[in-house]
Amino acid sequence: MEKSSPEKRTKATRSGARRCALQALYQWQVTGFSPAQIERQFLEEMADGGARLPYFAEILHGVTDHCEAIDAALGRFTDRPVAEIDPIERAILRVGAYELLYRREVPYRAVLNEAINLGKAFGGTHKSYKYVNGVLDKLAHEVRAEEVAAARRQKLA
């Protein structure tokens, strides 16, 4: 049996953490329960989640702790107030924006790809992922301009 590399495990672990964080943030948005209550519930359900748990908790608390700043950053690139965006799309946008703003070691392309995948899996319409990609791409160009430019130069080389 082939063993997965640490890089693949980290990617899979973070992908799972993002998926769970999306679900937890959706619950937070629609129920008004505290992040701590939601985290406890998810931790009970994810008891076998291993290394996925710390990143899940970081995203959940990072988004809820910085929600005002995240929404302000997103709001510059949305076609309506962030509060009026579909709750699933809003949660996906918040996860992506959190990583773009506060997790600089995660490449912006990885953030966008993960958000697109979440949009395809959970989005309310077949165009959800396109909307998410458009908003987060504009945010990435603003907050990670050097990284985006370097990636563009590398692609042209």
Rank of each mutant, 00 (worst) to 15 (best):
A110P: 00
L139W: 04
H126G: 10
G134P: 03
V63R: 05
R80P: 00
G119P: 05
T13R: 12
S4L: 15
Q41P: 00
P35F: 03
E68G: 08
Y98E: 07
G50L: 12
E99L: 09
G16S: 10
P81L: 06
T13L: 11
R52N: 03
F122E: 13
P107I: 01
L156V: 08
E146M: 01
V95N: 09
H61S: 02
K3V: 11
K130Q: 13
E68D: 08
G119E: 01
R14T: 10
R52V: 00
I38N: 02
L139S: 03
S4D: 10
E89Q: 10
E114W: 03
H66I: 00
A24R: 08
I88V: 13
G50Q: 13
E89V: 06
L118K: 07
F77K: 06
V106R: 09
C20V: 15
Y129K: 02
E2P: 12
E68P: 00
S5H: 14
A17L: 06
L25I: 10
G119A: 05
K127C: 03
P54F: 02
V111R: 04
E68I: 03
D86K: 03
R14Q: 15
M46A: 06
G32D: 12
A57L: 05
C20K: 14
I70S: 14
R19V: 10
D79C: 06
G75H: 06
E7A: 13
A91Q: 04
A83E: 15
T125D: 12
Q154F: 09
E146D: 14
R52F: 01
I38H: 00
Q29C: 10
Q27V: 02
K138D: 01
E114G: 02
D65M: 04
V30W: 02
G50M: 13
E147K: 02
A140P: 05
G124S: 14
E39L: 01
E99T: 07
G16Q: 12
L136P: 00
G16F: 12
L25N: 09
R109H: 08
K127H: 10
Y131R: 13
F42V: 00
